[in-house]
């Protein structure tokens, strides 16, 4: 076990970069946002709702990181799975459950669903070992899951009941919607619970070991393949949180393609964070959320249609300038 723990010490969840530039830049951004918020109430409102969007992206981005760290596969179906679970929540509520019981049931169903998907669809492909095969299988899963949402529930837009009464808090002339604040709170809580799970439980330790050193973990008695299924289950739970928070927001409609755009923002967030760091993905997601919201409200030519291309350009710049992201390890490719 010591070997595994030692390996983990070298690869912590939050792996700060040795360079001072990244933390300094982050502090700079934080100062800019706080000063801006103090000087203008519009700026403050846009920052808060940007953070709320960022919270949604963060849940999805952490789910992507979770699976990427374990298997080096980007789960292109993460958004579709989130949409599916959101429809499950909608269905439960249509059957008469109230919001929070439906929310809890959905998380349970999402966990079982993610676990099963790994077992049935991903594991047989994984055995063949090539990365591109796994990517294409994930694309197949995306088509399958998004298609079954349309098949089961139809392509018409559905209306999700709001979890919170539309209350507005007024703090010093700045209006904060309860919706935004709760979204931030729930997303952060979800990520935090997951972090505690990985940090302090034995299963969490086993999962990290399985991700970092599969061979060594197997030797000390960790069932690596079950840990991968478990990881997919947890990722699906995070996705479900993201999906339900997204459906509750007034700017997103519940339809089969609901998460397509959000998935790109989560990709961008995960890439900004370095694809392997969960904390990096959260910070990346909050940055992307705030950046897009501020650009959308202050730069006149950035229309809602352009937000996705802008996120793409951000991702491209990060990949070209610092491919390991803000918090990722620099990889050395041996020739």
């Amino acid at each position: 076990m010591t070997a595994v723990v030692a390996a983990l010490e070298r690869r912590l969840w939050f792996r700060p970069s040795t360079s001072w530039i990244v933390p300094a830049a982050l502090v700079g951004v934080a100062v800019f946002l706080v000063v801006g918020s103090l000087r203008s109430s519009l700026f403050a409102q846009q920052t808060i709702s940007g953070l709320a969007n960022g919270g949604i992206y963060a849940s999805l981005a952490v789910a992507l990181v979770l699976i990427y760290r374990a298997t080096e596969v980007i789960n292109f179906a993460q958004g579709a799975l989130a949409t599916f679970t959101t429809y499950v929540a909608w269905q439960l509520m249509a059957w008469g459950l109230s919001y929070w019981p439906a929310f809890a049931c959905t998380l349970g169903i999402a966990f079982a669903g993610g676990f099963l998907v790994e077992l049935v669809a991903i594991r047989p492909v994984e055995r063949r070992g090539s990365q591109i095969t796994a990517v294409i299988a994930a694309i197949g899963l995306l088509i399958l899951v998004e298609g079954s949402v349309g098949w089961i529930w139809g392509n018409q837009v559905k209306f999700m009941p709001a979890p919170f009464p539309s209350h507005i808090y007024n703090v010093g002339g700045v209006a904060f919607s309860r919706q935004d604040l709760s979204t931030i709170g729930i997303s952060i809580a979800a990520v935090l619970v997951l972090w505690l799970f990985f940090r302090f439980t034995k299963v969490g330790l086993a999962m990290r070991a399985a991700a970092v050193r599969p061979q060594a973990a197997r030797l000390v008695g960790v069932r690596v393949s079950w840990m991968l299924s478990l990881g997919w289950g947890l990722a699906a739970v995070l996705g479900a949180v993201a999906g339900m928070m997204a459906a509750a927001s007034p700017s997103v409609l519940l339809q089969p393609s609901m998460m397509d755009g959000i998935l790109i923002y989560a990709f961008a967030a995960a890439v900004v964070g370095g694809l392997e760091s969960a904390a990096g993905a959260v910070i990346g997601a909050l940055l992307i959320g705030v950046l897009l919201n501020l650009l959308g409200s202050y730069v006149s030519w950035v229309t809602p249609q352009l937000l996705l291309p802008v996120a793409f350009v951000v991702m491209l710049i990060v990949l070209l300038v610092k491919p390991s992201g803000l918090f990722g390890r620099t990889r050395v490719r041996r020739v």
Partner: peptide
Amino acid sequence: PALRFHGVYLALTTFAVALAVPQLAK
């Protein structure tokens, strides 16, 4: 950019292109 990206990163970038281009047309 594909000259610098490999496997997963290229998949990510081209996936984003597929979603971004229709938005530009709109």
